[in-house]
Simulated assay, not measured.
Amino acid sequence: MFHLFEMMLKSLDRVTEQSARKAARQMGRRHMLAKTGALLAGSAFLPALPFYRGTGLAQAAEPATGIVPTQCTYWRYCALDGALCSTSGGTMTSCPPGSEASKVAWVGTCRNPEDGKNYLISYNDCCGKAMLPNALSCLNSERERPGYRMGLHNDINWCVANTNKGYHCTVTVAVGLADE
């Protein structure tokens, strides 16, 4: 078994070396430096991918109903897995005092029954406080994707990017209309 593993590593080393030598023959140093620089500059935009929410939470226009949704069947909660901030000291779109929105989030597409349109909903965990025992917890997984799809899965502790990683509740922010 060990011998087979050793042969596979040698083979991988040989293929890697051949590829590196071929690339060196076909490209000059300047070309390689330019490509590496472009790769590094492009990687600076990775945090701007759809599941990154930074510090600000945008709010898309929605019909004002004057009610605070506190039931798991509310349309914005179609992909929510967690405690509602509206029952944990915050609102549907803002974290309770003493907690902060997660720097990363998952995104769902939910249909608003009032206007029949699909909206992109950003689900941000609020971090930094313990979860309240009487908070209403919802487990909705409409159109959920497998766990290896980072921005599409709701069973992850999204507070991992924050300094204080304790989970408190989840806010739902409509960020815009989904492409039809």
Score class of each variant (00 low, 15 high):
Cys95Arg: 05
Glu100Phe: 00
Cys127Ala: 07
Met27Gly: 09
Cys127Phe: 08
Val107Tyr: 00
Cys138Pro: 03
Tyr74Lys: 02
Glu144Ile: 02
Leu139Trp: 06
Cys85Gly: 07
Cys72Gln: 12
Met1Ile: 09
Gly147Ala: 13
Met8Tyr: 14
Tyr148Val: 03
Glu6Leu: 11
Asn134Ile: 03
Cys126Gly: 01
Ser94Thr: 13
Ser86Leu: 03
Val173Phe: 07
Asn164Gly: 04
Leu120Arg: 06
Arg149Ala: 11
Asn112Phe: 00
Thr172Arg: 01
Pro146Gly: 12
Ile156Asp: 08
Arg53Gln: 14
Ala135Thr: 09
Met150Tyr: 14
Arg145Lys: 12
Tyr52Gln: 09
Arg30Trp: 02
Val104Pro: 00
Ser99Ala: 13
Ala58Met: 07
Lys22Gly: 07
Leu57Cys: 07
Leu39Pro: 00
Ser43Arg: 10
Leu80Arg: 02
Ser141Tyr: 08
Ala174Val: 08
Asn134Lys: 09
Ser141Trp: 03
Arg25Met: 09
Thr170Leu: 06
Ala24Ser: 11
Cys78Val: 06
Asp115Met: 02
Thr170Met: 08
Asn162Gln: 10
Arg149Ser: 07
Ser11Lys: 02
Gly66Val: 07
Thr73Phe: 02
Lys165Asn: 07
Asp179Arg: 11
Val175Ala: 11
Tyr119Cys: 06
Leu39Glu: 10
Val15Pro: 06
Phe2Val: 13
Thr87Ala: 08
Asn134Cys: 00
Glu142Ile: 02
Arg30Val: 12
Gly116Ile: 00
Thr172Gly: 06
Leu139Cys: 10
Arg30Ala: 11
Pro146Trp: 09
Lys117Ile: 04
Met27Phe: 08
Asn112Arg: 01
Tyr74Ile: 01
Cys138Asp: 12
Ala38Met: 14
Lys35Met: 14
Arg21Leu: 10
Gly56Val: 08
Ala64Lys: 05
Ala135Lys: 04
Glu62Ser: 10
Met92Tyr: 00
Tyr52Met: 12
Ala61Thr: 12
Leu4Arg: 14
Met131Ala: 13
Val15His: 15
Gly56Trp: 09
Ala20Arg: 05
Tyr74Arg: 03
Ala83Cys: 11
Ser11Ala: 11
Asn118Asp: 15
Trp158Asp: 00
Cys72Ala: 13
Phe5Lys: 10
Gly128Thr: 03
Lys22Thr: 14
Cys85Lys: 01
Ala64Tyr: 04
Lys103Ile: 05
Asp179Leu: 08
Arg145Ala: 15
Arg143Asn: 12
Val15Leu: 14
Ala174Pro: 15
Ile67Gln: 15
Val107Asp: 04
His3Trp: 11
Leu152Ile: 00
Asn124Leu: 01
Ala41Asn: 09
Asn157Leu: 04
Ile121Ser: 03
Asp81Trp: 02
Thr163Phe: 04
Ala64His: 06
Asn134Ala: 08
Gly28Cys: 02
Gly151Val: 01
Glu17Tyr: 06
Val171Tyr: 03
Ser137Trp: 02
Lys129Ile: 00
Ser141Arg: 11
Tyr167Gln: 05
